[in-house]
C-alpha cells in the first residue's frame, strides 16, 4: 500500500500540468507528534515539509506517468529545489501545481508551486507556500541498465482510483 498525500486531482493537462489539493486534518495521527506538547511548550501541529515534498512528488509524478499513458515506472530521483515560507496547520488546504519542464526517454524534470487556502478569511485566496522542483527517472531506462519487475508497481490501483475519483480516468 502506498501512502497517498494528495486528496484529489483538480486539473490535469496531458504532459503539461497537474494540480492537486490536500486537506490537512487533525485526524492525521502524525500531526500530534509534529510537534507534541513538551517542556518547551504546548502542542504545535504542523504538516511536515517532507510530506509537502511528497505531495508535490505525487502530483508531478502522476503528470509524468500520465504523459506516457502510465507505461513507464516513474520514480522520484532528485529534489532540485524545495523552499518553504510558511507553516501548514490543520484546517488548511494545500494546493500543489506541477508543470512539466522537460520529458524524454530517460525521465522528466518538473517545476512545482505550493500554495495554501487558509479558509479563515472566508475566501479561496491562495497564499504562497513555496517552490519544489523535481527530477523523475523512467527507471526501466536507467543508465546503469538495472532490471526491475515487469508490473508497474508505481502506479498502483490506489493511484488509478485517485485519478478515477477525481474524474480523470
Amino acid at each position: 500500500m502506498r501512502w497517498i498525500w494528495i486528496d484529489r486531482i483538480v486539473e490535469l493537462e496531458k504532459g503539461v500540468r497537474c494540480v492537486a489539493i490536500k486537506n490537512v486534518s487533525l485526524a492525521e495521527e502524525h500531526l500530534h507528534d509534529h510537534f507534541a506538547k513538551d517542556d518547551r511548550g504546548p502542542a504545535t501541529p504542523i504538516h511536515p515539509a517532507s510530506l509537502i515534498i511528497e505531495g508535490m512528488a505525487q502530483t508531478a509524478g502522476i503528470m509524468v506517468g500520465h504523459a506516457r499513458d502510465f507505461a513507464e515506472k516513474v520514480i522520484l530521483a532528485k529534489i532540485g529545489k524545495a523552499t518553504f515560507e510558511r507553516d501548514i496547520v490543520p484546517g488548511q488546504t494545500l494546493v500543489f501545481s506541477a508543470t512539466m519542464d522537460r520529458i524524454d526517454e530517460a525521465g522528466a524534470s518538473t517545476s512545482g508551486v505550493v500554495e495554501v487556502i487558509d479558509h479563515t478569511s472566508g475566501s479561496n485566496e491562495r497564499l504562497p507556500v513555496g517552490n519544489i522542483d523535481l527530477m523523475f527517472s523512467h527507471i526501466d531506462k536507467n543508465m546503469r541498465g538495472l532490471a526491475f519487475p515487469e508490473h508497474n508497481f508505481v502506479f498502483t490501483d490506489q493511484f488509478m482510483d485517485l485519478m478515477r475519483n477525481s474524474g480523470f480516468a
Binding site: A77, K78, G80, A106, G107, S109, M135, S137, N142, M143, R144
Partner: peptide, 8 residues
Amino acid sequence: AESIDFLD
C-alpha cells in the same frame, strides 16, 4: 554528480 544529475 550521480547518474540522475547527468539527465538534469
